[in-house]
Write a protein that binds this DNA or RNA. Structure first.
Lengths: 113, 113
DNA sequence: CGGAATCCCTAATGATACTG
DNA sequence: CAGTATCATTAGGGATTCCG
């Protein structure tokens, strides 16, 4: 969790997105609904505890919608809310910049980062 | 520091920008050069140790340029490199999204975040 | 002024096991 | 399946002091 500075307008947004896995979660939900297990698998090596924590935070901040299906065993679907969708330009920017830094400047290649 | 997931293309960029104060540093350098002390003051309550650490990392990754002026006592100026300037679209995205979430959805108002 | 060197310490993450 | 509960860990950040 990052510490925001005084007048920097990015503060709250940084605080929202800085916990581990947060941006990746939004990334993988960008195209639709995923179940808890699918999301967990997509992320790789996140623990279910941390993933749950993150999803609860995002749900509380109305970024992510949680839908429990009345099956047995229960299935839980996660998707982005309208507010969550508003975050996608940030993801786009990350994506575009990543590509550019890699292609034009060779960043992210060796062990630089 | 965030843990990147497998196929998410944002991984390296996230890793680059996730340490505390990193985005704020870039934000305050966006319009030109700042001395160490000025940057420290702009950020608010960052310790000199952490700020130095962050600047060294950014310098190593060619995001930030460090220039020592031959004065006594020495002055050190920091500015964005060409690569650093490439990151500004990300900052723009943060900024625009922050405003939108605040104005249209009332996020970031109370203690929500 | 701009750090380097210490020491400290908590929040955040992770591993494991268990459950409705 | 989708979590909770517990415990362990650690590394990231902070406070302080001192230096050229």
């Amino acid at each position: 969790m990052q510490k925001p500075s005084q007048n920097c307008p990015l503060g709250p947004c940084i605080k929202l997105l800085s916990p581990a896995w947060t941006l990746e979660i939004i990334y993988y939900l960008r195209e639709g609904t995923l179940r808890f297990g699918e999301l967990r698998q997509a992320l790789g090596k996140v623990s279910s505890k941390v993933l749950t924590t993150r999803l609860r935070e995002l749900e509380k901040n109305r970024i992510v919608k949680r839908k429990v299906l009345p099956t047995n065993p229960p299935m839980v679907e996660y998707s982005l809310t309208d507010i969550g969708l508003e975050l996608l330009p940030i993801l786009d920017a990350f994506s575009k910049v990543s590509v550019k830094l890699q292609n034009e400047y060779g960043l992210f290649n060796k062990n630089e980062i």
